[in-house]
């Protein structure tokens, strides 16, 4: 549990433009809402995610994730499988340097799942609140 009850984590969401990115637009059109400190970066496919993107995101934020198309339903066949591997590689690195593995994750959803988008983001946010500030953040 985080010591500071007012802690508001910052989260970087890498979003596949065929699923997560559109789901965020869908959430907006449904008038849903989620915490402010969640920021999206668009990728053409979840398979474009790179360990370096996650690591850089964790220099700046408390948690990061990739949003991918549903399993077995990637527009590019295997992108989401490769993304899951990237997440595992990043988790291994985090473990080595003593940062919680849960600060990086992969979530699957479809373009028309605005509600699911908000649920994923909110749950992840709550989890980061529990974990507390990321010790790896580089505060200049």
């Amino acid at each position: 549990m985080s010591a500071d009850a007012n802690f508001q984590p910052k989260i970087v969401v890498f979003a596949c433009e065929n699923s997560g990115w559109l789901a965020a637009e869908h959430a907006a059109s449904l008038g849903l809402s989620y915490p402010e400190r969640v920021e999206l970066i668009k990728l053409p496919c979840s398979g474009k995610i790179d360990v370096i993107y996650f690591m850089k995101a964790l220099e700046k934020s408390d948690g990061t994730m990739i949003m991918a198309c549903q399993q077995e339903n990637c527009k590019f066949l295997k992108g989401n499988v490769r993304a899951a591997q990237r997440v595992r590689q990043t988790q291994n690195l985090l473990k080595e340097i003593g940062i919680e593995e849960d600060r990086v994750g992969i979530f699957y959803l479809a373009a028309n799942m605005g509600h699911k988008f908000v649920e994923i983001v909110q749950n992840f946010y709550d989890k980061m609140r529990e974990l507390g500030p990321n010790p790896g953040k580089v505060i200049k």
Binding site: C45, K56, K78, G79
Partner: peptide, 25 residues
Amino acid sequence: RCGICASECPGKAIQLPDYTDDQIL
């Protein structure tokens, strides 16, 4: 244009236009 090759290349030799590593980082 999925960019899978760019993120898999061990030599970081590949860049996908509009989504280069620099543009994201």
